[in-house]
Amino acid sequence: MDAIQQQMLDTYRATRLGEVPPPLPGRHDWEAVRDARDHLRRGAAPARRPGGGKLRRAVNRLLGRRGEGGRGEPSPRTSHQVSPRP
């Protein structure tokens, strides 16, 4: 069931019970975005795991990736590459 079908069913039930119909889908989306933005501006930073970047750097270093949080050091696997003979 998609949002429109659910809206139609909820509106039908509310009409049958004499209640106020629910708001249209998406009606309060921007209000929710503004509330979330204001919440973050008040200093409620998203929770971060302590040391979360260390694991990412270690994995990138082992995989030989550069510029993705690692220090740009070649991994042990790539350091044994054979250079061309003179």
Score class of each variant (00 low, 15 high):
residue 1 M to E: 14
residue 2 D to H: 06
residue 2 D to K: 02
residue 4 I to Q: 13
residue 6 Q to L: 05
residue 6 Q to S: 09
residue 7 Q to G: 02
residue 8 M to V: 08
residue 10 D to P: 00
residue 12 Y to F: 13
residue 12 Y to M: 06
residue 12 Y to W: 08
residue 14 A to T: 03
residue 15 T to R: 15
residue 15 T to I: 12
residue 15 T to G: 13
residue 16 R to I: 06
residue 16 R to N: 10
residue 17 L to M: 10
residue 17 L to P: 03
residue 17 L to I: 01
residue 19 E to M: 08
residue 19 E to W: 12
residue 19 E to T: 01
residue 19 E to G: 01
residue 20 V to Y: 09
residue 20 V to N: 10
residue 21 P to N: 00
residue 21 P to I: 00
residue 22 P to E: 08
residue 22 P to K: 05
residue 22 P to H: 02
residue 23 P to Y: 01
residue 23 P to G: 02
residue 24 L to I: 02
residue 25 P to K: 01
residue 25 P to V: 03
residue 27 R to M: 07
residue 27 R to N: 04
residue 28 H to I: 04
residue 28 H to D: 14
residue 28 H to C: 04
residue 29 D to H: 13
residue 30 W to T: 06
residue 30 W to F: 12
residue 30 W to L: 09
residue 32 A to G: 09
residue 34 R to D: 15
residue 34 R to H: 13
residue 35 D to G: 13
residue 35 D to S: 09
residue 35 D to F: 06
residue 35 D to T: 09
residue 36 A to P: 07
residue 36 A to V: 07
residue 36 A to L: 13
residue 36 A to C: 06
residue 36 A to R: 15
residue 37 R to F: 10
residue 37 R to L: 11
residue 39 H to Y: 07
residue 39 H to M: 07
residue 40 L to E: 15
residue 41 R to Q: 12
residue 41 R to G: 08
residue 42 R to A: 15
residue 43 G to F: 11
residue 43 G to Y: 13
residue 43 G to N: 10
residue 45 A to L: 12
residue 45 A to M: 15
residue 46 P to Y: 02
residue 46 P to V: 00
residue 46 P to L: 06
residue 47 A to M: 13
residue 48 R to G: 02
residue 48 R to K: 05
residue 48 R to T: 07
residue 48 R to S: 08
residue 49 R to F: 07
residue 49 R to C: 04
residue 50 P to C: 07
residue 50 P to W: 05
residue 51 G to F: 04
residue 51 G to T: 05
residue 51 G to K: 08
residue 52 G to T: 06
residue 52 G to W: 14
residue 53 G to F: 12
residue 54 K to R: 15
residue 54 K to Q: 12
residue 55 L to T: 13
residue 55 L to P: 03
residue 56 R to K: 08
residue 56 R to Y: 04
residue 58 A to K: 11
residue 59 V to W: 13
residue 59 V to N: 12
residue 60 N to L: 01
residue 60 N to H: 10
residue 60 N to K: 07
residue 61 R to N: 15
residue 61 R to D: 15
residue 62 L to R: 13
residue 62 L to C: 11
residue 63 L to Y: 05
residue 63 L to N: 13
residue 64 G to D: 08
residue 64 G to A: 02
residue 65 R to H: 14
residue 65 R to A: 11
residue 66 R to S: 14
residue 66 R to P: 08
residue 67 G to K: 09
residue 67 G to I: 06
residue 68 E to P: 01
residue 69 G to R: 00
residue 70 G to D: 12
residue 70 G to H: 07
residue 70 G to N: 09
residue 71 R to T: 09
residue 71 R to W: 14
residue 71 R to N: 14
residue 72 G to V: 00
residue 73 E to C: 00
residue 73 E to A: 04
residue 74 P to N: 05
residue 75 S to P: 03
residue 76 P to V: 00
residue 77 R to P: 03
residue 77 R to Q: 11
residue 78 T to F: 05
residue 78 T to R: 14
residue 78 T to L: 04
residue 79 S to D: 13
residue 79 S to Q: 15
residue 79 S to V: 11
residue 79 S to I: 08
residue 79 S to G: 06
residue 80 H to M: 10
residue 80 H to F: 05
residue 82 V to S: 11
residue 82 V to L: 05
residue 83 S to R: 15
residue 85 R to Y: 10
